[in-house]
Amino acid sequence: MRDLTVTFHRFHADGERVVVEATMAATLANADHYSDDYCFVVEIRDGLVHRVRGHSPRVPSDLLRSPPGKTSIRP
């Protein structure tokens, strides 16, 4: 994977929880373009990050290693 970019869209804070909406994009090992939306829930305790939970699509590990044109991401 290369050319990874993260674009942050929204932050929602309520007490010690922050929800982050973002889009990540990259060029995969097989040269295909990948882009998808993600949601992270960040828990804060005593002013420090206590836990981060990410909700995202799963990319099969073999997709990241596939030669060009052999694999594609399907919804």
Rank of each mutant, 00 (worst) to 15 (best):
Val19Asn: 03
Thr7Ala: 15
Val20Arg: 09
Cys39Phe: 09
Leu28Thr: 06
Arg58Ser: 05
Ile73Tyr: 07
Ala22Gly: 10
Phe8His: 14
Asp62Asn: 14
Ile44Met: 07
Val19His: 07
Val41Glu: 05
His50Tyr: 03
Arg53Cys: 08
Glu16Val: 02
Asp62Ile: 11
Ala25Phe: 01
Ser61Lys: 12
Val42Asn: 04
Pro75His: 09
Pro60Val: 02
Val42Trp: 01
Val19Tyr: 08
Pro68Glu: 13
Ala25Glu: 02
His50Val: 01
Arg17Ala: 11
Val59Cys: 10
Asp32Val: 00
Arg58Pro: 00
Met1Cys: 14
His50Trp: 08
Glu16Met: 04
His33Arg: 06
Phe40Asn: 08
Glu21Met: 12
Val59Phe: 08
His50Leu: 08
Ser66Phe: 01
Asp14His: 13
Ser72Lys: 02
Ser61Gly: 06
Ala13His: 12
Asp36Met: 03
Val41His: 00
Arg74Met: 12
His12Pro: 00
Phe40Gly: 02
Ile73Ser: 09
Gly69Ile: 11
Ala26His: 03
Pro75Gly: 10
Tyr38Cys: 06
Leu48Gln: 06
Pro57Tyr: 02
Asn30Ile: 11
Arg58Met: 08
Ala13Val: 13
Val18Trp: 04
Ala13Ser: 14
Leu48Cys: 09
Arg45Lys: 11
Ser35Glu: 08
Asp37Phe: 03
Thr27Gln: 06
Thr23Ile: 04
Val6Pro: 09
Ile44Val: 07
Pro75Val: 13
Arg53Tyr: 04
Glu43Thr: 06
Arg65Leu: 11
His55Val: 08
Thr71Met: 10
Asp32Gly: 09
Ser35Leu: 01
Val18Ile: 14
Ala29Glu: 08
Phe11Gly: 11
Ile44Asp: 08
Asp62Gln: 15
Val49Cys: 05
Ala29Ser: 14
His9Trp: 13
Thr23Arg: 03
Asp46Cys: 07
Lys70Glu: 11
Thr7His: 15
Arg53Gln: 05
Ser72Met: 02
Pro60Thr: 01
Arg2Tyr: 04
Val42Arg: 01
Ala31Val: 11
Leu28Asn: 07
His33Cys: 09
Asn30Ser: 05
Gly69Val: 09
Asp36His: 08
Arg65Val: 11
Ser56Arg: 10
Asp37Ala: 03
Val49Met: 03
Arg17Asp: 07
Arg10Leu: 13
Gly54Lys: 08
Arg74Cys: 12
Ile73Met: 10
Arg10Glu: 14
Pro75Leu: 14
Ser72Pro: 00
Asp37Pro: 01
Ala25Cys: 06
Val20Asn: 03
Phe11Trp: 14
His33Gly: 09
Val19Met: 08
Glu43Leu: 06
Arg58Tyr: 03
Val19Gly: 03
Ala31Gly: 02
Glu21Gln: 12
Asp32Arg: 07
Arg10Asn: 15
Phe40Met: 04
Ile73Ala: 06
Pro60His: 01
Thr7Ser: 15
Phe8Pro: 09
